[in-house]
């Protein structure tokens, strides 16, 4: 792997963390202001009584908003914009939802098993109208497990960059270039974990999250195509175009 000095790793962690905070969509201070308010029972019931396609559209819009912040984050990662456009797109198509799922733990209240959504904190029951309760449960379980790691913002930042720069994505044209970037990012991840005096298994724990993320993203794609088989017109005319570009 590339030999990288500690000073360079410090600098890499700092720039990635700065990019993360500039593009994180929700600053934790903002969330504190909402005083972690959860939806009232009446509000929960109104989500539950929405037609399935409307709730799907709402969630597709929210995911698409989050994706745009992840694209901005990627553009700020050292070396990403030097990759060929094909690979930039391959990495974003495969990795943006993974980063969103990781970022979700910043917006997650594990005491109440709820996530910041559409203005307040929502439990899994808010999403019942989607008709994919098992996937929603797995997403909440993942958020809970990420929260229990209590990652700091700079650890989340570097782990997000590490996920985006996955050299094992199919269709990459310059695999070696991506591999080099990912190796450097992994060194930065080890560096920030050591600097924050994390116990030895921390990096392995994070790496074990990768397979869970891959599975969640695959299930999202499968659930979307099952939905589209039933409502092709809704997806074609009412889903954000960027969402369809990424997951269509």
């Amino acid at each position: 792997s590339p030999s990288v000095s500690t000073a360079e790793l410090d600098h890499l962690v700092q720039t990635i963390s700065k990019s993360h905070l500039e593009t994180c969509q929700y600053l934790t201070e903002e969330l504190q202001q909402t005083s972690w308010q959860s939806f009232l029972q009446a509000e929960v019931e109104s989500y539950q009584s929405k037609p399935r396609e409307l709730m799907w559209q709402l969630c597709a819009v929210k995911i698409t908003e989050a994706v745009q912040y992840v694209v901005e984050f990627a553009k700020r990662i050292d070396g990403f914009m030097e990759l060929c456009q094909n690979d930039q797109i391959v990495l974003l198509k495969a990795g943006s939802l993974e980063v969103i799922l990781v970022r979700m733990c910043r917006l997650f209240d594990s005491q109440n098993n709820s996530v910041y959504f559409d203005g307040k904190f929502a439990g899994p029951d808010v999403f019942r109208a989607l008709g994919c309760d098992d996937l929603i449960t797995s997403v909440f379980d993942f958020a809970n497990s990420m929260c229990s790691l209590r990652l700091s913002e700079d650890e989340l930042a570097v782990f997000s960059a590490f996920l985006l720069l996955s050299a094992d994505r199919s269709w990459l044209q310059e695999k070696l270039k991506v591999e080099k970037l990912q190796q450097k990012t992994q060194l930065a991840l080890q560096h920030v974990l050591q600097k924050n005096r994390r116990e030895d298994g921390a990096l392995n724990k994070l790496r074990s999250k990768v397979s869970a993320l891959r599975s969640l993203c695959t299930r999202h794609t499968e659930t979307l195509s099952a939905f589209r088989a039933v409502h092709p017109d809704v997806v074609r005319t009412h889903f954000p175009p960027l969402y369809k570009e990424l997951f269509g």
């Binding site: 914009m81 456009q85 797109i89 974003l92 198509k93 570009e245």
Partner: peptide, 14 residues
């Protein structure tokens, strides 16, 4: 293909 993603990548980092 990926018209919007291309566009977002071209825009100066907002």
């Amino acid at each position: 293909k990926h018209k919007i993603l291309h566009q977002l990548l071209q825009n100066s980092t907002s």
